[in-house]
């Protein structure tokens, strides 16, 4: 019996270590080749680098306009997510505590809208934003993300707030606590688990989004990181030292974040899907 258990354990580790390699090897290859010269990469992309060649990084950093693209991505992501949290928690609180007809209608529309794929609204969005002269405008991109993600956030907050006893709020109101203060000072701290789920899901979705900035931002100085990576790689597609270094630079911010917040991110995503 014990032997069987042991052999099962060995089998588990063999399979899962192989799987681990399959999942991470592509990233390892990119990192390894980013330290080689282009000639080295082409001759043998699976060998270890002969030395630590940082030319690819220097050139990629410059050509990708790295700091600027990073800044654009950061501005759009942080701006959208902060606004999203603010407007959705206010809306969801009103909906959860007042059983008005209009609230139910709006909530129903929001839930139904979650099935609409981006491709279906992409062309009219481009049309409307261009005719309002809102292309090449980072604030317009933030506005779009607020609209695109607000339904999900309201829905999640709504469900969570419903699970918190109303008596608590009544008591606070009897004590003379105003609505806004009640919401942000008393209720908001209690919403922390759901807030972190919403923030994590939206940060990942917005930081990595490609298609929307692709159709709304044309100026190089306004491009977000994924957009810049794409056009950079298109330009230097045969210089693998440069391409791989560029890829590492693009992936680095999220990977660093992941190293620190791994547990929260995984919990947040798992919670988000179940809700």
């Amino acid at each position: 019996m014990k032997e069987k258990k042991n052999s099962r354990k060995i089998l588990f580790y063999i399979i899962f270590v192989l799987l681990l390699l399959a999942f991470l090897y592509p990233f390892f290859l990119v990192v390894m080749n980013s330290f080689k010269t282009n000639k080295e990469v082409i001759l043998n992309p699976v060998s270890l680098p002969a030395g630590l060649n940082l030319d690819g990084y220097l050139k990629a950093y410059e050509n990708m306009n790295y700091l600027q693209s990073f800044g654009n991505s950061l501005f759009v992501t942080v701006g959208s997510v902060l606004m999203l949290v603010l407007i959705s928690v206010m809306c969801a609180h009103l909906f959860a505590r007042n059983n008005w007809k209009i609230n139910n209608i709006v909530l129903m529309l929001m839930v139904a809208s979650m099935i609409i794929p981006f491709q279906t609204i992409m062309i009219p969005v481009v049309k409307n934003f261009s005719s309002l002269d809102l292309t090449d405008n980072l604030f317009a991109v933030i506005f779009f993300y607020m609209g695109a993600h607000v339904a999900m956030a309201v829905f999640m907050y709504h469900g969570f707030i419903k699970g918190i006893p109303y008596e608590l709020e009544e008591a606070a109101m009897i004590d003379g606590c105003g609505h806004m203060r009640l919401l942000f000072q008393i209720l908001f701290p209690m919403l922390k688990p759901i807030t972190s789920t919403i923030v994590i899901l939206d940060v990942l979705a917005i930081w990595n989004d490609f298609l929307l900035p692709y159709v709304l931002l044309y100026k190089n100085s306004l491009k977000t990181l994924p957009l810049m990576t794409y056009s950079f790689v298109g330009q230097y597609s045969t210089d693998y030292s440069l391409v791989t270094a560029g890829l590492v630079l693009t992936m680095l911010p999220v990977v660093i974040l992941y190293l620190f917040l791994q547990k929260q991110i995984i919990e947040g995503v798992a919670q988000g899907a179940i809700k």
């Binding site: 407007i87 959705s88 206010m90 809306c91 709006v106 529309l109 929001m110 809208s113 609409i116 609204i121 969005v125 506005f143 779009f144 607020m146 609209g147 695109a148 607000v150 339904a151 309201v154």
Partner: peptide, 9 residues
Amino acid sequence: AVIVFTAVI
């Protein structure tokens, strides 16, 4: 929330 949702979606 209703305004951004209506305008965008």
